Amino acid sequence: MPLSIDAIPTLESNYVWALHDGRHALLVDPGASAAPLRWLAENGLALKALLITHHHWDHTDGIDDILAEHPVPVYGPEDRRIPQVDHPLREGDHVDIEAPEAHFEVLSVPGHTSIHLAFFGHRIVLCGDALFSAGCGRMFEGTPEQMLASLDKLAELPADTRVLCAHEYTVANCRFALAVEPGNEDLRERAREATALREKGEITLPSRIGAERRFNPFLRTREPAVIDAVRAHDPDCGSDPVEVFAALRRWKDDF
């Protein structure tokens, strides 16, 4: 039975992604417990596992309360900052769950944090805070080299891969991206679409990798238009992709 996907809003901008088959469910990055627990109860679903991408509180604070009601395996990074993880994972590992039937390849995507995973399978990527629609996560612990390599890895996924990131940042990300590439028609259309969806109270996700390649500036640091915009903003920036990415991220941090 194919996996159904629901986004459970939590906190100010987070989504806990729920993958289910109508009877059994997985939850991803529960930064709070009340909304996911309510969702499970209202839908009559049995929780079978938690998937965790990284240690930040808004992705992990709901774990203990959820486990108190649903003692299930917790798959996530091999990181002492997430003590609830009892199935530690690294690059190249696989997650195979019987119900709901789910199979994911584990990708290491550091940069936002020093240890960060993404889960790829079923034509979706659960990427936490590594990649957002029209944006990417801040570099709290990693280096520009790490972050660019992680984004390159995600950008190489099949074009129809659905991007299930953990925050509703699309409208704000599009505003910055338009400052970088105001003439990008794909980006302009994404900005119009995202704004219209939010005005109706609807989610802007998932996006798709192929679309992100066309309008996400952080996946386009080798494009002449992005390089020119970054160097116009920061004349000391060279044309090396890592330099361009680092300058672009600093620009976004101060935007």
Rank of each mutant, 00 (worst) to 15 (best):
20 H>N: 13
69 E>Y: 09
82 I>L: 10
47 L>E: 06
32 A>G: 12
11 L>C: 05
68 A>E: 13
15 Y>R: 14
48 K>D: 12
34 A>M: 11
62 G>L: 00
48 K>Y: 05
24 H>E: 11
78 E>G: 06
43 N>H: 15
58 D>V: 13
67 L>A: 04
43 N>A: 13
22 G>M: 08
48 K>Q: 15
20 H>A: 08
31 G>V: 03
21 D>E: 03
56 H>P: 01
49 A>S: 05
75 Y>K: 03
60 T>N: 07
56 H>N: 08
61 D>V: 02
33 S>I: 01
63 I>F: 02
17 W>L: 04
13 S>W: 15
76 G>K: 02
78 E>K: 15
11 L>G: 03
61 D>E: 15
24 H>K: 09
53 T>E: 13
22 G>P: 11
53 T>H: 11
70 H>I: 01
21 D>Y: 04
78 E>D: 13
41 A>I: 05
67 L>K: 05
37 L>Q: 12
64 D>M: 15
58 D>M: 08
75 Y>P: 01
72 V>T: 04
46 A>V: 06
71 P>N: 12
17 W>P: 02
67 L>S: 03
76 G>D: 07
44 G>V: 06
81 R>S: 10
80 R>P: 08
74 V>I: 03
81 R>C: 11
24 H>C: 12
77 P>R: 04
71 P>K: 06
82 I>G: 00
58 D>C: 03
32 A>Y: 09
51 L>C: 11
76 G>A: 06
36 P>L: 00
77 P>G: 08
54 H>F: 07
75 Y>V: 00
45 L>C: 10
64 D>I: 08
39 W>D: 04
16 V>T: 09
42 E>R: 11
16 V>R: 03
62 G>H: 01
33 S>W: 10
51 L>V: 15
16 V>P: 07
46 A>Q: 13
21 D>S: 00
46 A>E: 15
37 L>H: 07
71 P>R: 13
55 H>W: 13
75 Y>T: 03
78 E>P: 11
76 G>P: 02
69 E>Q: 15
82 I>A: 00
66 I>T: 08
45 L>P: 07
52 I>V: 14
77 P>C: 09
17 W>H: 15
52 I>W: 00
38 R>E: 15
34 A>W: 09
16 V>D: 06
25 A>N: 05
47 L>I: 00
30 P>I: 00
59 H>Y: 10
57 W>F: 12
36 P>H: 12
74 V>D: 00
58 D>I: 07
61 D>W: 13
65 D>W: 09
51 L>A: 06
67 L>R: 11
52 I>D: 01
44 G>Q: 09
22 G>Y: 12
31 G>W: 04
62 G>Q: 03
48 K>F: 14
26 L>P: 01
26 L>G: 02
70 H>Y: 14
55 H>V: 04
49 A>K: 01
66 I>D: 03
47 L>F: 12
33 S>M: 04
58 D>H: 14
64 D>P: 09
31 G>H: 14
67 L>N: 11
44 G>C: 12
43 N>L: 05
54 H>G: 04
26 L>H: 02
79 D>M: 01
63 I>K: 07
21 D>C: 06
77 P>D: 01
24 H>N: 12
47 L>Y: 00
40 L>T: 02
67 L>G: 02
53 T>D: 12
18 A>G: 04
81 R>I: 10
60 T>S: 05
58 D>N: 14
74 V>W: 00
72 V>A: 11
18 A>W: 00
58 D>E: 05
56 H>T: 10
